[in-house]
Design a protein around this nucleic acid. Structure first.
Lengths: 332, 332
DNA sequence: TCTATTGATTAGAGCGCTCTAATCTTGTAA
DNA sequence: TTACAAGATTAGAGCGCTCTAATCAATAGA
């Protein structure tokens, strides 16, 4: 289990440790002859540079911290995939943590990430207070995904939830719907924008908004529909629902079908996020797509710009969502 | 962005660096008076030990590498959650990579993990050849999840796919089904065991196995059902399907319903993995549950046993799956 | 009073690397 | 032949920490 060091490679190749270091960093100022000899020795010994020692000596890190609230949520998992792809492409490695939507656990997770002295940290929909984020930003560049910030030291990557919700409302109105309810995402960081976009779009069409408080789970979606069913008779029921996210939409669909209402014939349903769930032929959910891979890419990009000192002004990426029309929406 | 070091804390507290080191490691041989002073100084400066420097100096790592083939698969994402929880509890951090089911990318990912000199590495359903894994095992303890190995240097954590498939078959037979087809998982590492368990269970019940080649995606599930529909007339069609995993099952259900067959009235369907997908009320898929959190926990435990030198013999965890009966299976 | 003894503290080397500055080689121009 | 520039190589300090061994202080025993 004891791995060779640069010293071993140097001895084997008959050169100095410094020369091996130069070769390992692809320095151009090494003769071809020596380079070959060093590479050969390294290969024979199975030598690979020790990333941590390198980080310590060079005072630069190739590690990026990622805190994700919950990997079980397909949306987050897919953003992490995007982060990973972008990080790998840039030669960075991710150290990953989950915070479980608990402020105290998130705090510990963040502290743990920072103790690696990472080049930067990505926080995926964190629930810690803004002050904790600003404290962290004093230690290394921070990018927030799916959460906004006013601090000039942190960058943010979000989808334009207002636009996304409006997209969905426009689509439904175009299909002739007029009674369109929104199942609100509750405490989720993205809820406010989606709700606002919904309300504005409704009013823009001269329609009355109807917001039902809910959460980003399928169970909450069911409950919200039950509430609606309890409050309205069949004729007064909304003909379309804009759910807070895909999970919520699936729950809503369940409850509707259980109540004998067909989707989309009786009620149209639109989700949000376009998770892999929505794409399943079996569900074929009309939903608003957030470009997750792109979000991951932009987050890494923003981080690296700060790392390289290319920028000190904050950047606020507001990605344009797009509507993916599938089978859960239909003309009224 | 320049963070305080142990030296700074020592200066502020008026003690030596070594003493600060002792305090940071909770050594009992420090007087209460000094401990308080050091802790106070650390707090004021916002000092946190540098994990990498610590790793280098102590020649021990608190980092565990994790390579996951694909985070989009909810099963893997949930195992990673389990790994993270167990690692956090033991004071370890995860560095995470994706390999994208490509041997070359997995190789690079693994190399990248090893260059951190981690205490151990967890490989989640890797597709690299066994030799690459054994090479890695020469550098640090390796645990394989959802993949078997004969090497005495690597530990494995798997669910008992044979037992799981048999559980499903038994359930279906008990419901009166006799024509039960299996949609095979193709190249996936877990496929062979599930197929074997299915075949043995079928023969055990005096039934003829029928294996349809498929993959672990919903699209492949649809295709497999189309094949079945093309090969059998309505009367000869299997009355039950055991899919390779949940995604595959969902695809199969779609195709069945599209063909005018109701699930479960006409055809019962059983999935595998019990991903969050299966639990959605809307699908309510009968499926075989793998204890993912437990798998993550056992993987970390096995790793740490090797790290601590408590064990050199390989361990082969074969977890007992359980059947979760929901709404996609019914008596014939 | 002097020496053990115990517990608390610290000096200093070293982990595996990078980086600056110094040194060693060549080739070339005068 | 000498001087010098340019390129190739290396010595050595240092990154922030741990760890061993040494030192120091305070108490106890003779």
């Amino acid at each position: 289990m004891v791995r060779p060091t640069m010293e071993d490679v140097a001895a084997k190749a008959g050169v100095s440790r410094a020369l091996v270091s130069l070769v390992m960093r692809n320095s151009p100022k090494v003769s071809d002859q020596r380079r070959t000899a060093v590479l050969e020795a390294a290969r024979e010994l199975g030598y690979e540079p020790h990333v941590m020692a390198r980080a310590l000596a060079s005072r630069t890190s190739t590690v990026l911290g990622v805190m994700v609230s919950d990997l079980r949520n397909a949306f987050f998992a897919e953003v992490v995939e995007g982060l990973d792809a972008a990080a790998q492409a840039a030669g960075f490695d991710l150290i990953l943590n989950t915070g479980g939507r608990s402020p105290s656990r998130e705090r510990a997770a963040l502290r743990s990430l920072l103790s690696f002295r990472p080049a930067g940290v990505v926080l995926l929909s964190p629930v810690v207070p803004a002050s904790a984020i600003e404290d962290a930003a004093r230690q290394c560049p921070i990018v927030l995904v799916s959460r906004t910030s006013r601090a000039s030291t942190v960058d943010t990557v979000n989808d334009d939830g207002e636009a996304g919700a409006a997209l969905a409302v426009d689509h439904l109105v175009e299909l002739g719907h007029r009674r369109i309810a929104h199942l609100d995402g509750g405490g989720a960081a993205t809820s406010a924008a989606r709700r606002k976009g919904y309300q504005q779009a409704m009013r823009g069409h001269g329609l009355e908004p109807l917001v039902v408080r809910s959460e980003h789970t399928d169970h909450a979606g069911e409950k919200a529909v039950h509430e609606l069913l309890g409050s309205y008779d069949r004729a007064g029921l909304p003909t379309a629902l804009l759910a807070g996210n895909d999970f919520n939409a699936v729950g809503a669909i369940s409850a509707l079908e259980e109540a004998g209402l067909r989707v989309p014939e009786d009620v149209s349903v639109v989700g949000y996020d376009n998770t892999s769930l929505a794409a399943l032929r079996h569900l074929s959910l009309t939903t608003v797509d957030q470009p997750r891979t792109e979000m991951g890419r932009l987050a890494i990009e923003a981080l690296l710009e700060r790392v390289r000192g290319e920028r000190t002004e904050p950047v606020r990426h507001l990605l344009h969502p797009s509507l993916v029309v599938r089978s859960t929406t239909i003309a009224v």
